[in-house]
């Protein structure tokens, strides 16, 4: 419980500082376009890494593919490509993942 508040406090401060420093101190400096691009690519790299970590789960020191997660993610990816709707796509992925869990494994 204490840890959650500690976490919230630390994240709140570090996130606010990143916003404030940008407005107050970085404004007059020319930032290189490369750095700009690099920063913009960071979130997608982190999201991809998170996905890998959730699809390949360590069991007894070995990596195994979680089929419900993998197939659920693919379903969501296809759904959002077609519908462009966030929540329905998430729900579709969960439902497909659940079906895989109960019927295939």
């Amino acid at each position: 419980m204490l840890n959650q508040w500690l976490l919230i406090g630390i994240l709140a401060i570090s996130t606010y500082l990143s916003r404030l420093i940008g407005v107050v101190f970085m404004a007059r400096q020319k930032m290189s376009p490369s750095l700009r691009l690099y920063f913009n690519y960071v979130p997608i790299a982190i999201i991809a890494a998170l996905l890998v970590k959730q699809i390949f789960v360590p069991t007894d020191g070995q990596l195994t593919i979680s089929l419900p997660v993998l197939i659920g993610c693919i379903s969501t990816a296809v759904a959002i490509k077609i519908t462009r709707l966030f929540l329905p796509s998430v729900v579709i992925g969960i439902v497909v993942g659940l079906l895989v869990r109960y019927f295939l494994i």
């Binding site: 994240l11 916003r19 420093i21 940008g22 970085m26 404004a27 930032m31 700009r36 960071v42 979130p43």
Partner: peptide
């Protein structure tokens, strides 16, 4: 978690700089 969030937040520096004016 903190290190990852700091990394994620780097782009706020760009946004802030661009919005300052």
């Amino acid at each position: 978690v903190l290190l990852t969030v700091i990394l994620l937040n780097l782009r706020n520096l760009l946004y802030g700089a661009a919005l300052a004016e």
